[in-house]
Design a protein around this nucleic acid. Sequence first.
DNA 1: ACATGTGAACTGCTTCACAGCG
DNA 2: CGCTGTGAAGCAGTTCACATGT
Lengths: 207, 207
Amino acid sequence: MKRIADSTVRRLSIYLRFLEEFEERGLATVSSEELARRGGTTSAQVRKDLSFFGSFGKRGLGYSVPELLTALREILGLGREWRVIIVGAGKIGAALAQYRGFRQRGFQIIAAYDTNPEKVGRPLEGVQVRDMAQLETDIARDRPDIAVLAIPSDNAQAVLDRVVKAGIKAVLNFAPAQLHAPADVTVKAVNMAMELEGLSFALTNRE
Amino acid sequence: MKRIADSTVRRLSIYLRFLEEFEERGLATVSSEELARRGGTTSAQVRKDLSFFGSFGKRGLGYSVPELLTALREILGLGREWRVIIVGAGKIGAALAQYRGFRQRGFQIIAAYDTNPEKVGRPLEGVQVRDMAQLETDIARDRPDIAVLAIPSDNAQAVLDRVVKAGIKAVLNFAPAQLHAPADVTVKAVNMAMELEGLSFALTNRE
DNA sequence: ACATGTGAACTGCTTCACAGCG
DNA sequence: CGCTGTGAAGCAGTTCACATGT
């Protein structure tokens, strides 16, 4: 398959949200123009994004909401359950564990990990906290698809190396560190400090 | 000033982190090559990024670590304290309130806001929780620079409108919703669900 | 000799504009 | 006629390659 731009995938996620909303409201069809307006982009962009994956619309009419919804879920791989582990049972790990948006879209949190003996064994927001020492054996047994790193920067690369070696191919990193992984492993980063610095830059450099 | 790409600003944040580390280790100079290797980019990219703001290096030698550090802090607007409010005292708000990386870089959290009377009045991770009803009057008095939205999607646009109307020009949004604001207001979004969907896509569409 | 700074070339994402089809 | 689907054009960000300064 042709390589798809990151920006395209992010917009597909956005369209998906609107379509879910439209479905709830019982709307039968939607135009690229409508999706664009809501998503802060252009109708041409919407059509181009979708065109990479097929022809989902009807000329002169627009897109069937349920049909496009199904197509987008398929494209994004949301037609199945993904097994997720959270590494780090601190405040951020806890916030993630209780986040309803995950389960809702098929991301099932199967366990959290921490080194702190105080936390190990106790449930965290309904998720079992296990000892980091078990990480490799657990991954071999439970075969999670995704690891979320909610740990300090210092250990982030070391822990990434461990989960990668154990066979994980997708990682979401919350540590404010630039991590390196093999090409067949996808690493996405959420860096709050960096976003704030972007705001600081914007506030400072406005004419 | 020429418009600076978002991607450039993000990379400057990354370089800043490495320079802080280099300074701690007492290194005097660093080359664009070294910064590139650590940051997962190319030396030409590093030099181009910096060139938008001036000439900070010495040919044949590289960049002075302390000098480039000072320059980057200046560029990113980190030479001052930024006043931040957190709207939403839930789990995510709590995780943000205790996050040490903020204060460390000059982002001072002056208050959190919530509608829940159980939470109002009690401190959250050392931050005072106030009633959302006071939002406008407090903003007028305290003049925060940045608002962080850690609230459910349903209210996110309404709350954004309120803080914008009260004079806030920079917003960091954690709600998984596409928000719209006037052009003179910078809105950055952190969307965990969307990042996970990006991973789902990557896992699904690999050849 | 070495590493920066930068115009030029390139790559790839976005926008345009219109043919195609319901 | 209206709106999609899509080549072509336009534009922005990245990479190249070398002149420049130490």
